[in-house]
């Protein structure tokens, strides 16, 4: 795995070497140049976790920008935490073990890393993949992340705040990179904004809308103070995210 300078790395710790390798394969599809490293199974490839594999994976994933570590079951977290204890202070200060869903969180983290986001943003991306207001999940403003709204919220005229409807012009639709840019922009505002009823701060939710070229995006907020946020996101979409 080539080291990618200046980007956050992502390490997948699983009891199964196949799961860890599969996650790297899956995430690499959307984040081909991010440093994604598998640490699955024991040293002799049985089911379990390996302290040595976790240590060397963190080392391999780090290019100076930090490493996000995602784990599957309890003892994988114990192994990762133990590994952290043995890192030197400098490296440890930029490693984060994130309690997020391994698949969704891993893909979200990888895409954020691919987009050049900093360590804390990659952590947030991983955490924001947990829908349903799971405990410990916070958004960029430090407030509990709202449950992802269902389709019922998407209907026109249901919100009292600003609304703008724009058309997606990107040939490849709202794929990983523009989705990450949109989520990053949405996360920079205090007010919650939705795209077709989906929380604009959740990368996975935005990507799972599956928006293709020509799709209509309804950028809206219930918050009357979200005028700037809605305008900025709508402008971004109309601009083609700098791709067209």
């Amino acid at each position: 795995m080539p080291e990618v300078s200046g980007r956050v790395g992502v390490v997948f710790v699983s009891h199964s070497s196949k799961i860890a390798a599969g996650l790297v394969e899956l995430a690499a599809q959307m984040a081909p140049s991010a440093a994604l490293v598998a640490a699955g199974g024991t040293d002799d490839d049985r089911i379990g976790t390996s302290f040595d594999r976790v240590m060397s994976a963190i080392d391999e994933a780090d290019s100076g920008a930090g490493v996000v570590v995602l784990c599957d079951l309890g003892s994988a977290i114990l192994t990762a935490e133990t590994a952290l204890d043995f890192l030197d202070d400098e490296l440890r200060s930029r490693v984060r073990i994130v309690d997020a869903p391994l698949v969704e969180g891993g893909v979200a983290a990888a895409v954020a890393a691919e987009s050049g986001e900093d360590l804390e943003s990659v952590v947030r991306a991983a955490l924001s993949s947990a829908s349903g207001g799971a405990p410990g999940v916070v958004n960029g403003a430090g407030e509990p992340q709202a449950t992802l709204p269902g389709p019922a919220d998407a209907g026109p005229g249901t919100s009292a705040g600003p609304v703008r409807t724009v058309t997606l012009v990107n040939d490849d639709g709202l794929h990983a990179r523009p989705a990450a840019v949109l989520v990053k922009l949405a996360s920079s505002f205090d007010q919650k904004v939705t795209v077709n009823g989906t929380d604009a701060r959740s990368l996975l939710a935005i990507m799972s809308l599956g928006l293709t070229k020509g799709a209509s995006l309804r950028i809206a907020s219930d918050d009357p103070a979200a005028g700037d946020a809605v305008a900025a996101i709508a402008d971004l979409v109309e601009s083609g995210f700098g791709e067209v």
Binding site: T42, D43, R46, G48, T49, S50, F51, D52, G74, S75, L78, T79, E81, T82
Partner: peptide, 10 residues
């Protein structure tokens, strides 16, 4: 720590 491979290791 480096050989057990389950929760008992850490």
């Amino acid at each position: 720590i480096s050989t057990v491979g389950g929760a008992a290791g850490p």
